[in-house]
Lab assay of single mutants.
Amino acid sequence: HNLTITQGKLFFHYNPKLCLSEIHKMEEVSGTKGRQERNDIALKTNGDQASCENELLKFSYIRTSFDKILLRWEPYWPPDFRDLLGFMLFYKEAPYQNVTEFDGQDACGSNSWTVVDIDPPLRSNDPKSQNHPGWLMRGLKPWTQYAIFVKTLVTFSDERRTYGAKSDIIYVQTDATNPSVPLDPISVSNSSSQIILKWKPPSDPNGNITHYLVFWERQAEDSELFELDYCLKGLKLPSRTWSPPFESEDSQKHNQSEYEDSAGECCSCPKTDSQILKELEESSFRKTFEDYLHNVVFVPRKTSSGTGAEDPRPSRKRRSLGDVGNVTVAVPTVAAFPNTSSTSVPTSPEEHRPFEKVVNKESLVISGLRHFTGYRIELQACNQDTPEERCSVAAYVSARTMPEAKADDIVGPVTHEIFENNVVHLMWQEPKEPNGLIVLYEVSYRRYGDEELHLCVSRKHFALERGCRLRGLSPGNYSVRIRATSLAGNGSWTEPTYFYVTDYLDVPSNIA
């Protein structure tokens, strides 16, 4: 807008934040220059609390790290170098490059900038070799853009010569660093050979998330399962459950009422301010606690030095998902009996873990797994792929695949051998790939016309006998059925096997 004052003059007093240069501009645009008398524009009460600059400061050096910015700028000295009290560095987070010096300023003089007072450097006698002032900004957020400017702080001049310097606002972004852990990993099994893994992005990506790394490792069953005799009275049979499938998407929606109208769909109840505040506090606490764990609990591995020492970490090797089922080394339970199943799973520490690289999504279907087997899954978020990966501390989750139908069934015939004193040795093959492992066998036998009897055969007993022995049988026709019990439950009964026990007292003698 054009402003013209045809008559009258300007009068400025007691404006401590208004620089004289701005008042002189007002004289020019209003056409009143030359009308004012000496005392109409006070030299001592206008701009006496402001830094009124008329020179431009330029930054000469900028260096960044993930949490620091090192700045240096060209030296500046007023005509009387004693008038320079120091520099004021202003900075704040700036997602967009549209910041002005006066953003967030209120009537009390406060604003949204963080201000650092910096002492002037030592003055050199040689004007050509003056030290460049600077400042190291610490405690910054990774991968965050900051708006920065600097200006001088000078003393009051009796001659009211307006001098000083100020830089333009520059924008500097800190470097990326390792992201925080992925949030809320959930693993479920939808079949006997697959596990579905879902997660949420890290709360602090500290860069642009480029991919996720998912490692999985087959877990050995508890050692007590191999040692305890679950045929003993009072000892509860062990059981394991597989990871249940995901709930429906509708039930997972946030901010939804727990109660549904019987007449149909209901609208979600909005969260109160107290609920939102509580969630923010919980989120802040979780982030602080995660940072504490990362800094205190997890110790970084030592990389190899120039002395030739090897990095103890196993090298990563990509495998196809079809090879995942046989990740671990199978060892027989008892070496003397080769027909026992290889369900003991000690994992070799030198073995390469299978892994998958996930790009542009937060889910993965891990296939080719062994049925009813526990897996430990390790999830890392990465925001750099080359020249070397920059990934987060791992988040861990466990899951067990679903049982395989008929995996616990005894394959092959049940054979028998009759000894003296009416002892019958029953023999059968253990299931080759049971659900988890076989903890015991149930032997059901009966003599024709009598009630059915049951015998429990422990895992250890089966390994020693290759089956079991029935003792003290009365003469007669017998039928026997056997079924295995694994961590997933009972298998199917075998087809009945028949044998006849004679009275050993009636056996004919070869003595003449």
Rank of each mutant, 00 (worst) to 15 (best):
V443H: 00
A335D: 14
I511F: 04
E389L: 08
G322Q: 09
V334K: 12
A335K: 12
N421V: 04
G322R: 14
P431A: 04
E258D: 07
K287Y: 13
R447C: 08
Q275R: 12
E279H: 07
A488C: 02
P434M: 02
A512V: 03
R376K: 15
R318S: 14
G207P: 04
V331I: 13
L280T: 11
F215V: 11
L379H: 01
Q275M: 08
C231Y: 02
S486P: 00
A395C: 03
F289W: 05
G368L: 08
F215M: 06
W216L: 06
V345A: 12
G374S: 06
A405D: 04
I276T: 13
W242G: 10
V414C: 02
N208A: 08
S248F: 14
D503P: 15
V439K: 10
E404R: 07
A395I: 05
Y375A: 01
L437Q: 12
L235P: 07
Q380V: 04
Y441M: 01
S367V: 14
Y212A: 14
D250T: 08
F289Q: 07
E279D: 09
R400L: 04
F285P: 11
K357V: 13
A407T: 11
E227L: 10
L228H: 02
F337M: 14
G449N: 06
D229Y: 15
L293S: 05
N208D: 14
A309G: 13
P300H: 09
V414D: 00
D250R: 11
T303C: 08
H425C: 02
K361Y: 12
E221A: 01
T210G: 11
V393W: 11
V443R: 00
V507Q: 13
S320K: 09
A463F: 11
F419C: 14
P300L: 06
A263S: 09
V439S: 06
D506S: 13
P332T: 04
Q380N: 09
R318A: 12
L232D: 15
P332A: 06
R240V: 07
C382Q: 01
T343K: 14
E227I: 06
T343P: 08
S283T: 14
E388P: 06
I418Y: 10
E279P: 06
V329H: 14
S251N: 14
L437H: 03
P496L: 13
D250M: 12
G322W: 13
G449C: 05
P349T: 11
E420A: 09
K317G: 06
P431I: 14
S458F: 04
K253P: 15
F337I: 06
C231R: 01
S486G: 05
V297C: 06
L228M: 08
G264R: 10
V439Y: 13
V411S: 08
T241Q: 13
E362L: 07
E378M: 08
E282C: 06
I418K: 11
V443Q: 00
V327Y: 07
R376P: 00
G489I: 04
E417R: 10
Y445F: 03
E465S: 13
N360M: 09
T340A: 08
V457M: 13
N208C: 13
N435Y: 00
S363C: 14
L453N: 06
S344R: 15
S342E: 12
V424E: 03
K432G: 03
V296Y: 09
D503F: 07
E260F: 11
I482F: 03
L237D: 09
T347A: 11
P312G: 10
L470G: 00
Q384A: 11
P434Q: 11
P238V: 03
L277D: 09
E247A: 10
L225K: 11
P300F: 12
A484I: 14
E465P: 01
L470D: 01
L232Q: 13
F289H: 12
E350V: 15
S304T: 04
F298T: 10
T497V: 12
S398I: 12
G368Q: 14
V324D: 05
V359S: 06
G472W: 05
T288D: 06
Y230M: 04
L277F: 09
P238A: 08
F372N: 08
G308H: 14
E465W: 15
A394C: 13
K460F: 08
R447F: 02
S486V: 01
V414G: 01
W216E: 03
F419Q: 10
F337R: 12
V423K: 07
A336K: 11
T272P: 08
T288P: 11
L237I: 14
V297Y: 13
V480Q: 07
V327E: 14
L473M: 09
N435C: 11
D311S: 14
A394H: 14
P354S: 06
C391F: 02
Q219P: 13
N490L: 15
D222P: 07
C391T: 11
N510I: 15
S274L: 03
D450N: 08
G368F: 07
L473G: 00
L277K: 04
H416Y: 14
R481T: 06
V411I: 06
H371C: 05
W242E: 04
A335T: 11
F419M: 07
G325A: 15
S458N: 07
L473K: 01
G325K: 15
C391H: 02
G264D: 09
E495V: 12
F372A: 09
F337A: 04
P332H: 04
T485N: 10
S304V: 13
V424R: 06
A263F: 06
N255M: 12
Y445D: 00
A381S: 07
P338A: 08
E282R: 11
V457T: 06
N490C: 09
G308D: 11
S474A: 10
E281F: 14
P387K: 07
F285Y: 10
R483E: 00
W242V: 11
N435H: 03
G234P: 05
E281D: 03
D229W: 10
R469V: 10
D408V: 02
H416R: 03
K302H: 13
E404H: 14
E420Y: 15
L369P: 00
Y504I: 09
D409R: 07
K271V: 03
F372P: 00
S304N: 15
P434R: 03
S305W: 03
A220T: 15
R240H: 07
E442M: 05
K236S: 11
L455P: 01
R370E: 09
V507H: 00
V507N: 15
K432S: 13
R240F: 07
I410S: 10
E495W: 15
I377Y: 10
I438Y: 03
V501F: 12
L213A: 14
R316L: 09
P431N: 02
D273P: 11
V397A: 15
A394K: 06
N422C: 04
